[in-house]
Design a protein around this nucleic acid. Structure first.
Lengths: 183, 183
DNA sequence: CGTCGATTTCAGAAACTTTTGAAATCTGTG
DNA sequence: CACAGATTTCAAAAGTTTCTGAAATCGACG
């Protein structure tokens, strides 16, 4: 399977962006290829399309599976594994955010709580700073959890509210946490 | 300046997380040290506190400046540069999101628009997939721009609305974009 | 239970990033 | 305009990650 020029350019871009996104070039390229392919692809096809080694494909697919970014399909009378990305882009976004949260935020939240537990009170500024950071991260991940639970239709409505959002917030009222004191 | 045990542990954690956050160990450590220091620090102090080379400090600070994550201060009758992180955590979050958007999202948005412009119509599925992705990214970055413009007090109110958010969205009404069709 | 295609693991080679110390540059002051 | 302190640049060493081909493992089928 030779990628079309459009696919090719998209694939190369994902490969280049990979390092900024915390994945390597091949993983980015494999994902890009699957994303643009209507039919599921097997490892051999991916290897040839991207002109990489078979073992590299294997590792890349394993990595994508660990991110929950690909789905496994089976084709009757073919024992090879076939891979796709979900059709629904919102599902992809939810997965991406959930996985990044798990890798980039949760370990720090755990560490901050741990540091607060064992803090001795002898380092006022640092302790205050750590608590404030922990509160802020909790507020943001809490909001994310609420968004996560919304059906897509409502989420899209919220995302497209634009400037109307401001008035809406006021009407809702409610008590204001200490952290809002930032200017 | 020798860091306290609390600072030390926080600094080491930021160093380890650095690679997941797309910065290197030293950059993470320098940031952590500045974040927990009430007073601004100069390069020499940072070098000694983290036990790294002077040139490494210089490069780390340059990197942090390119991310707009540190502020430069000057102390009367001292010509060395002193560095701090902003007191206001919300400002830090805004900067972080803005910079990550600039590095991780904007180049892809540009590329997707470019691909749509030059697409020939000969690759229906891939072209539809690319347009859909571009629309979704635009919707999300548009929402981010709206959030960006909110004063902190309102932003915090929104973040802490919790389940009340759902009813609120319904009241607002408005037309629903095609992308909401994801289930 | 041996064969065969498919997949994974692994150790080393290649590529890339980080860190350093030394040298170069910059900047304010006498 | 020279000097002294401060900072940056640079080339090379150290460290890390990615990629490969060869060998090991898996698993369905006869």
């Amino acid at each position: 399977m030779r990628p079309t020029p459009l696919q090719q350019e998209f694939i190369l871009h994902f490969g280049e962006m990979g390092s900024r996104w915390g994945i390597n070039r091949t993983v980015g390229q494999i994902y890009a290829l699957l994303f643009l392919s209507e039919a599921p692809l097997n490892a051999e096809t991916i290897t040839k399309a991207l002109n990489i080694s078979r073992s590299n494909t294997s590792m890349g697919l394993k990595e994508l599976q660990s991110w929950n970014l690909v789905r496994l399909k089976h084709i009757p009378d073919d024992r090879r594994d076939y891979f796709t990305t979900p059709e629904d882009l919102w599902e992809i976004v939810r997965t991406l955010i959930a996985e990044r949260k798990k890798r980039e935020i949760d370990p720090t939240l755990t560490k901050l709580r741990e540091l607060e537990m064992t803090a001795s009170g002898g380092d006022t500024y640092a302790e205050a700073r750590i608590s404030e950071l922990r509160e802020l991260i909790e507020m943001m991940t809490g909001f994310y959890d609420d968004m996560e639970r919304l059906e897509t239709v409502r989420l899209v409505k919220l995302l497209t509210l634009g400037s109307r959002i401001s008035g809406l917030i006021e009407k809702a009222g409610g008590a204001l946490p200490a952290l809002a004191k930032g200017h």
